Amino acid sequence: MRLLFVAAVLMLSGPPVFAQDNPLQPSETWEGLRYDVILQDTDPPDAAGVMALDAPARATNPALVPVRITQPEGAPAIRKLIVVVDENPAPVAATFTFGDSMMPLDFEIRLRVDAYSDLRAIAYLDDGRMVMAGRYVKASGGCAAPAGSGPDALARAGEMRLKTISEGDRQVSTLMIRHPNFSGFQRDQVTLLNIPARFIDTLEVTQGGESLFTMEGGISISENPVFRFAHQPSQEPMKVHATDIDGAVFDQVLSGGGTG
């Protein structure tokens, strides 16, 4: 199990290469969702030049789809980011907020994708604008895919690992939190009954007393969530505070070399 834990951390340990031929497609689902998500009837302007979202055109594993959001130098800071998978049972995958030391943003997560779907990110910028970027991803079955660690995975829920490397004038950290993030659509392979939903719903990562990022998450965040993010260098340990929908609380103080 330890090897699986380390392997999952390393999956996002280097910059991925994504296809660039999968732009957003017309989506009747998004037309119906849009107002509930962003409280307006029209799409935000395209994020070109401000933010890019990259994801594979065809996912090799629908339960572990890597998604990376990046910004060029000098772009307006992103204060809030809503990530949406149009065709998922719960389309809003997560809402993130970011601190100053995360700018310009270079942030990667892994998502479940349940059907061929647009995957989009709506950013609220420091200058008051809202912009949107996205990709069309061919994947199916991610929300019901069997949990790799089985229904007994909750016994080790909350274990964390952090890896940090230097890239230019920034640090790049990879944080993994062990948790099955049960979606409610998976079945116990013995009883064939649905495993009740239980997933991390809040996450706060701080360093040196300052917020790096927060998350309000849902069932679309993958099992054993992994977050890869660039930030300003610091020798201070990271403090991670997470909760799940069953009321469990997970707190860790982590250094870049491994577990806290």
Rank of each mutant, 00 (worst) to 15 (best):
F98V: 05
Y116N: 15
M51H: 03
G99I: 05
L125E: 03
V249P: 06
R58S: 12
M130S: 14
L10M: 13
F199C: 04
R110S: 12
I200W: 02
V190S: 12
H241E: 12
A145S: 13
R156I: 11
T174R: 09
D127L: 09
R34A: 01
Q252P: 06
D54M: 01
P225W: 04
S220H: 04
L162Q: 01
V50I: 10
A55F: 02
G148K: 15
E210I: 06
Q252I: 08
H179K: 06
A147E: 13
F227W: 03
E167D: 13
M132K: 00
F18R: 00
F213Q: 07
D114M: 02
T29M: 13
A63S: 07
L10Q: 14
A157Q: 12
I165R: 15
T214V: 08
G256E: 09
G32V: 03
P91L: 02
A94I: 04
G150W: 08
L193A: 14
P146A: 06
Q189R: 13
L254R: 11
S117D: 02
F5L: 14
V137E: 02
P146I: 07
D244R: 06
G141Q: 07
L10R: 14
V6H: 15
P225A: 09
A77R: 15
N88L: 03
L81C: 03
K239V: 10
F229E: 00
A230M: 03
Q71L: 02
N22W: 00
T60C: 07
P225N: 08
T191L: 06
R187W: 09
L64N: 11
M103T: 10
L4K: 14
V92G: 07
P56A: 00
V172Y: 05
V17R: 11
Q207Y: 03
L111T: 01
R129M: 04
K239F: 10
V226L: 05
M130D: 11
A59W: 03
A52S: 10
A230L: 05
F227D: 01
R170I: 08
P72A: 07
S117R: 03
N88D: 08
A157N: 11
F213R: 06
T202Q: 15
M132T: 00
L154S: 08
R120Q: 03
L81N: 00
M176F: 11
F229S: 00
T214P: 07
S220C: 10
G258Y: 08
S222L: 05
P23W: 02
Q40S: 05
R156W: 15
P66G: 02
K138V: 14
S140E: 15
I177E: 04
E216R: 12
M176R: 14
R110M: 12
I221Q: 08
S27H: 07
L64P: 04
A145K: 13
V253I: 13
I177G: 04
S211Q: 15
C143S: 10
F98R: 04
A147S: 15
T206H: 07
Q40C: 03
A7Y: 13
L203C: 05
D41E: 15
I82R: 15
